[in-house]
């Protein structure tokens, strides 16, 4: 961070830039900070885990995927390949997801937004845009053997293994709102949701998870291990 100079305007693009994170000790409130995010009494064998991966960096990248300079610039700045349609790439800290033919979403550590934007601008040229939307959206994580069932109740997109392999990313309808859904693992999903809709989506997902046993919060190691065995008798369909 120390090398970054907070300039008002990026010289090359003539676009206003701004380190939006306070330096002083200012509390940040994520979009779901008001929701109780821990199960007081967790179910025995939860089918669904739900938690917020709050206060991350969210940068929207716009540019021409067919422009080699743009691709290389993104790769140099993020260390990630520019993903093809409906795909995502991922490093330890950063994830880069395809949103549209000229749009990607880069997510990563919350305190890195301005540093990453500056790095990107250093490596990019021509017609491109970087937009910091870190305050405008959050990541909701959905895991567990029945996470996929919860998604089936919530969105019209086909989330079956055959259509939604790990790494795929899809922007689609979720309940009466929308989400960008990325599959991180066998039973592990990430939903990018807009701040103003986050409360509604959170309540919707809690409701949809009810019948499978909902654990608010991340699975611990032991539970995560149990998840690899997803067979659960459905109480109704038998």
């Amino acid at each position: 961070m120390s090398e970054v100079i907070n300039k008002t305007v990026d010289e090359a693009t003539q676009v206003a830039i701004m380190d939006q994170c306070p330096t002083a000790d200012v509390p940040a409130r994520s979009p779901l900070a008001h929701q109780d995010q821990s199960s007081k009494v967790a179910p025995q064998n939860p089918g669904v885990f739900l938690w917020e991966d709050a206060l991350k960096t969210h940068l929207v990248l716009r540019g021409d995927a067919n422009n080699a300079d743009f691709r290389q610039g993104i790769e140099a700045a993020t260390g990630l390949d520019l993903p093809e349609a409906l795909q995502s790439t991922q490093s330890d800290d950063w994830a880069l997801g395809w949103i549209a033919p000229d749009e990607w979403l880069l997510t990563g550590p919350g305190d890195q937004a301005f540093a990453m934007e500056t790095t990107l601008r250093k490596h990019l040229s021509g017609h491109y845009a970087v937009i910091n939307v870190s305050g405008g959206q959050t990541l909701v994580r959905l895991a567990g053997p029945e996470a996929r069932s919860v998604l089936m109740k919530s969105c019209p997109y086909d989330v079956h293994d055959r259509n939604f392999p790990i790494g795929k990313i899809v922007n689609t309808v979720l309940a009466k709102s929308q989400a960008t859904i990325r599959r991180l693992g066998e039973n592990d999903w990430e939903l990018v949701v807009r701040r103003s809709f986050a409360d509604y989506i959170w309540r919707w997902l809690m409701d949809a998870s009810g019948e499978y046993g909902l654990h608010l919060g991340q699975p611990d190691a032991a539970t995560a291990a149990r998840q690899s065995n997803p067979s659960r008798a459905n109480p109704v369909e038998g």
Binding site: V60, Y128, A129, I131, G135, R194, S196
Partner: peptide, 12 residues
Amino acid sequence: EVYMNTVTDHWA
């Protein structure tokens, strides 16, 4: 050459 994105939710 113009890119447009919503930042409605980003700013309070």
